[in-house]
Design a binder for these strands. Structure first.
Lengths: 133, 133
DNA sequence: TTCTCTGCAAATAATTTGCACCCAT
DNA sequence: ATGGGTGCAAATTATTTGCAGAGAA
């Protein structure tokens, strides 16, 4: 199955790269729509699926009900806010971890290993403090 | 808000405890239904939400589109199969990790930190091998 | 008695799919 | 010209909510 570089696909990739956030499908849709008003949400979903399958982008399945997409496929971890569900990148050295031979855990063939750190982001800490008063 | 121990709630907890797997809401529904045929799926969802909010069970938001629930709220990590989406427990010593002051990362107040290891489980390795032949 | 909980049905939210046409290769 | 890609609308999947009646405390 050959991948074609359509205008839609190109715009989706460009927008995802432009904002270094971790956007959801419909956030991306709203942005792409500004310069390409007739694009459909289904196209965005289809492309995000195809591109992440091809390893060009990365699908994140953490925090909240919507999937998020990351233009950075390099090995890295994430920290997310349990309140506003924002996700930020995190570079953590996992080499020091005393993991009992991770490559053979429970008979699994390991394909990935990531650390998901959760917490309250600075913005939400203020929000919470205000509410508690 | 007071929590009441209804028959439904008790059964849901019992089933979740019985199978030490990480069941989805509707897997749990199917099991509870066997001994309590008139229970509704909405009740299962509502209870899982309430119980995890109360810290009695734990909601897992990894791997696949459905949320899964864990009767074990003790600190532990998970390994999941990228193929069949099964989740198993993992006990990993994270104390050796050289994390740059995890409690202050990017100004966040850290509430949790877990390792999600992904891979192909033994069962799915065989499946894949067979398919590739 | 009081107030949370329940079942049912309907509503939402997120994502996927069928189909006929379009366009990158 | 081929076969992957698109827009649209409808379908699915997962979860949530309104409401009136039930039942734990």
């Amino acid at each position: 199955m050959q991948l074609r570089m359509t205008n839609q696909r190109e715009m989706i990739l460009r927008e995802l790269n432009k904002s270094k956030e971790h956007l959801t499908a419909d956030q991306l849709y709203e942005r792409v729509r500004k310069s390409m008003p007739r694009i459909s949400l289904a196209t965005v979903y289809r492309n995000l699926e195809i591109l992440s399958e091809a390893g060009i982008i990365r699908k994140l399945e953490i925090s909240g009900r919507q999937k998020r997409f990351d233009s950075d496929v390099e090995e890295h971890d994430h920290i997310y806010c349990i309140c506003c569900h924002r996700i930020e990148n995190l570079l953590i050295d996992k080499s020091g971890m005393k993991v009992p031979r991770l490559d053979t855990v429970k008979g699994y063939t390991i394909t990935g290993c990531r650390l998901e750190v959760s917490g309250l982001c600075p913005r939400c800490q203020q929000k919470t403090a205000r509410t508690k008063k």
